[in-house]
């Protein structure tokens, strides 16, 4: 059977359309877009207003600023950075910070009350990733290297990260750090936590709410280091420790007007 060029091109075009059609369907069908929220297509990754449910988990961190001093922030930061082999880079431009201290003004920049209570105004606030319920970083990541787990933790998959740093631009809290150089140049083998890997140049990293410790039934490193300041618990369970505290204490969250719904609460 001989076929002329025109007929061939028509057939080839229709085939290509058909193939890409199924591909497009897979991509855009209902439920496929939830893929960026991790392995959960049930929709429970979408924020927790719907779920006042003991069986759901949304991890949250409470930080009691009335009992937090600068030395506590140092201690927590050291515990976190040691547990996760976070290097102390010489060049401040290449700094990698999972948990660090910031002034009151720096923590709440756009709502800075210059007539604030004296005690609060001079505190050092411990800052970390807020593990937002509606994280902008997850929205922008082109490879789903950062994704929101069903338990509320915004996780990083370093294997998939291409280092485009879009998430760093998107994060309104400055929680993310990039490995500009090999982090191992600033780490000594003897000081490492051998149970946890390092990262490599070209990947973005941040606080991970100690997922690896949670898997072993342990509390996050900062909570273990400074228990009188840090409290960790399940926000979705109305009877949990954190919910009880939040009902009684005044709390602040950073940049609430941006709609990110952060999970880190500062008790004042």
């Amino acid at each position: 059977m001989s076929i002329d060029r025109r007929k061939f091109l028509k057939m080839a075009g229709l085939t290509a359309l058909g193939l890409s059609g199924t591909g497009a369907y897979e991509l855009l069908k209902p439920g496929a877009l939830e893929a960026s929220h991790g392995h959960d297509a049930h929709g429970s990754g979408h924020g927790s207003e719907a779920a006042e449910d003991k069986n759901r988990t949304r991890w949250a961190m409470l930080i009691d600023m009335t009992r937090c001093e600068a030395a506590d922030v140092e201690k927590a930061s050291h515990a976190c950075h040691h547990a996760h082999n976070v290097p102390d880079m010489e060049n401040p431009k290449h700094a990698i910070k999972w948990l660090w201290g910031e002034t009151y003004e720096g923590t709440f920049p756009d709502s800075h009350n210059e007539y604030q209570a004296h005690e609060l105004e001079h505190k050092t606030f411990p800052l970390m990733c807020n593990h937002c319920d509606k994280p902008p970083c997850v929205r922008v990541c082109p490879t789903q290297a950062t994704f929101r787990r069903p338990d509320g933790i915004v996780a990083m998959d370093y294997h998939r990260c291409i280092g485009c740093r879009f998430c760093m631009a998107a994060c309104p809290y400055g929680s993310r750090s990039f490995n500009f150089v090999d982090p191992r140049t600033a780490l000594k083998f003897e000081d490492l936590n051998k149970k946890f890997p390092t990262r490599y140049p070209g990947a973005v990293e941040k606080c991970n709410f100690c997922v690896e410790r949670l898997a072993d039934g342990l509390q996050p490193a900062c909570v273990e280091a400074v228990p009188h300041v840090f409290t960790f618990g399940n926000l979705a369970d109305p009877d949990s420790n954190v919910r009880k505290i939040l009902r009684e204490r005044t709390s602040l969250r950073r940049k609430l007007e941006l709609g990110t719904k952060p999970s880190v609460f500062y008790l004042v």
């Binding site: 490879t143 291409i162 879009f166 490995n179």
Partner: peptide, 18 residues
């Protein structure tokens, strides 16, 4: 890009919200 050898991840893992 920080990890150019992983560049194809953008194609291998399409992310319509990005």
């Amino acid at each position: 890009i920080g990890q150019p050898n992983k560049m194809m991840n953008v194609v291998l893992f399409p992310t319509p919200n990005s």
